[in-house]
Design a protein around this nucleic acid. Structure first.
Length: 627
DNA sequence: GTAGGGTTAG
């Protein structure tokens, strides 16, 4: 069950262990082997290493140290073991700690309160809460009472095991039993609440902890500011940052980065830049992450020249760009259809010995796909594999989307099969893209087949998947089936959007169920969903098809008063209705209005007018008016 | 010698 750690004994010994003695004459590893060969056991003092502190020790060396410790007789004290274990836990190598603990057990080295506490923490951190609880039971049987530290670890364990209500209950229980939750306990729970999208409870708990006399720490502020930024409450995050600084807790670069990134994500680039200046004025140096947030943000706006300027700026300030910096810029240039610029940046990152990552390659592939250069996309795909960088589900999704968009859905399906052969599992995006592609190619059966496969494979369809399915069914004359799916969607927890309703309204209107369509349209305001231009146009078209010209015109009027702006489709639908009706004056009037909005007659309208010209119902001037 | 957290790219 637990990860086994392979021991490669001597290779793990820390350099400082061998510097003493004949290090000058022998290379380190050689000198060590020599000594081992002499006496068959370690001849250096692990105690000295422990005394000197383990803060900078590497994992390999820590494991080597452990293997030396278990060789010595008598065994080192449990305090010495716990120093080593906690150093490894600080590296977040929790599985290693657990494995070493098991080895101690096998060797008959008894644990104490501290080592048990370390194991409980490690089990909690790697989501093995039940094992943590088992250790707690064992520990209590031995007469050790858990203290606030151990209990806080368990609170963390519940938070990380999606059992937030039990985490809350545990803290309540602790209070009942007379424990005093401290800053760490509260901060852990606040973090858990944010992780479970319970931001308001988290914020309320901050107030409670203050009332209980617990000081907020930099960590507490970090948790809260991050949680607020992630849900878009940037103003509150910003005011907390100010409050923290007024309370004499010194801000660091990371908390500024968090807020700057939040501002970037929620489209306040200028505020982000202002905060950037503010932090510099306060003497907090921005780092590569700060720049990466700003550069990515500018790239997302297509402001690649501003982004490039920031790259020069950071290099000037001797802040080294990394793979994230280059990937963001390469992504922007590739999307913009500037492959030469992207390649220049790619070469520059190689020159700086920065290894491209899968994200870099995926961006390059996406750039080619977006500009219908599928052959080059595939070449890039092969190139990345040749460089030992293996495609992931995003790589395949990008290529599949490219092929579907280029109406080459069979090749998309081929890629889908290939990825399965490589042991990669398609996700919601993969299936959704292919279902859309298949419907577009009018391969209705295969599309529905794939939807079934998606569900049976346990890949959860999302709203987009369902919308494509509804659209496909409606376009295939299967309104009844679409209505069943729609009914299911309404009963589910999914929040349907205007696309869902537009598809259904159009489907109803096109099959003559205009009244049903109208009822659904009227129900939208109750649902708090605003109809868009497509919804209005579908409904207007529905009225027209039933000859309900007045209703159509009334809805058009309402749309102009408080709805979305009519588009070419809206005008053309109404113009055709007037023409069929023989109402030349009204048609001419509407064509004029449409032209003033810079729209022109569409193929369907021009076709109708041409026919009417031939049979003499219209004169030439109509055709001229249309374009 | 034991507990908590926050930032960036597709």
């Amino acid at each position: 069950m637990l990860a086994k750690i392979s021991f490669r004994g001597k290779r793990f010994v820390h350099r400082s262990l061998v510097v003493r003695g004949n290090a000058a004459t022998f290379p380190p590893s050689f000198s060590l082997c020599q000594r081992r060969a002499f006496d068959g056991k370690s001849s250096y003092d692990y105690r000295e290493i422990l005394r000197n502190g383990l803060s900078d020790i590497r994992l390999d060396d820590a494991i080597g140290l452990f293997s030396e410790m278990v060789k010595s007789r008598p065994f080192p004290s449990i305090i010495e073991f716990s120093k080593l274990l906690s150093a490894i836990a600080k590296m977040k190598k929790f599985d290693v700690v657990i494995s070493l603990g098991e080895q101690m057990q096998k060797l008959g080295i008894a644990h104490d309160l501290f080592t048990y506490s370390i194991f409980i923490n490690c089990f909690c951190r790697c989501s093995q809460l039940s094992l943590a609880l088992a250790i707690l039971g064992k520990m209590m049987k031995l007469g050790y009472e858990p203290d606030i530290v151990t209990l806080s670890s368990l609170v963390n364990g519940y938070c990380h095991s999606k059992r937030i209500s039990e985490a809350v209950a545990l803290v309540d229980q602790m209070v009942e039993m007379g424990y005093q939750p401290n800053t760490v306990t509260f901060t852990t729970l606040i973090h858990g609440l944010f992780l479970h999208n319970k931001a308001s409870e988290a914020v309320a708990l901050v107030d409670q902890m203050v009332q209980r006399g617990c000081q907020l720490s930099l960590v507490t502020y970090g948790v809260v500011v991050n949680g607020l930024c992630k849900k878009g409450d940037i103003d509150l995050a910003l005011s907390l940052l100010k409050k923290m600084e007024l309370g004499n807790i010194e801000a660091d670069v990371v908390i500024y980065n968090t807020v700057i990134d939040g501002l970037c994500k929620y489209k306040h680039v200028n505020d982000a830049r202002n905060l950037f200046n503010e932090m510099e004025n306060k003497g907090i140096k921005p780092d590569v992450v700060t720049y990466n947030s700003l550069i990515s943000c500018l790239c997302n706006y297509g402001r690649w020249s501003d982004a490039s300027r920031l790259l020069s700026d950071m290099i000037e300030k001797k802040i080294n760009p990394d793979v994230v910096t280059f990937s963001a810029l390469i992504d922007a240039f590739a999307k913009e259809g500037k492959p030469l610029e992207a390649e220049k940046l790619y070469k520059e990152m190689i020159r700086r010995s920065i290894a491209p990552s899968i994200v870099t390659y995926n961006s390059l592939i996406n750039g080619f796909c977006m500009h219908d250069r599928l052959d080059e996309a595939k070449q890039m795909f092969e190139f990345m594999v040749s460089k030992g960088c293996f495609p992931n589900v995003v790589t395949y999704n990008t290529l599949i989307k490219g092929f579907c968009k280029a109406k080459r859905v069979e090749e998309g399906m081929e890629l889908f099969r290939e990825m399965s052969q490589r042991g990669l599992v398609g996700d919601t995006v993969t299936y959704t893209t292919l279902i859309q592609g298949l419907f577009q190619a009018r391969d209705f059966d295969m599309a529905q087949e794939l939807f079934k496969e998606m569900v049976s494979d346990g890949v959860p369809p999302n709203l987009m998947t369902y919308n494509f399915l509804l659209d496909g069914l409606c376009n295939n004359g299967k309104l009844e089936k679409a209505l069943v799916v729609f009914g299911y969607m309404q009963k589910s927890k999914m929040e349907l959007n205007i696309f869902t309703y537009s598809i259904m309204i159009e489907g109803m209107c096109k099959t003559g169920k205009v009244e049903d369509g109208w009822n659904l349209f009227c129900s939208l305001s109750l649902k708090g969903v605003k109809p868009n231009v497509v919804t209005y146009t579908s409904m207007i078209s529905g009225f027209c098809s039933k000859g309900l010209k007045q209703e159509a015109y009334a809805l058009f009027k309402k749309m102009k008063e408080d709805g979305p702006l009519p588009n070419s489709g809206t005008y053309n639908t109404l113009i055709r209705e007037h023409l069929r009706d023989g109402d030349k004056a009204a048609s001419a009037e509407l064509i004029k209005e449409m032209r003033s909005c810079r729209f022109a007659g569409d193929a369907s309208t021009i076709g109708l007018v041409t026919n009417m010209l031939h049979d003499g119902r219209l004169d030439k001037s109509f055709l001229e008016m249309l374009s």
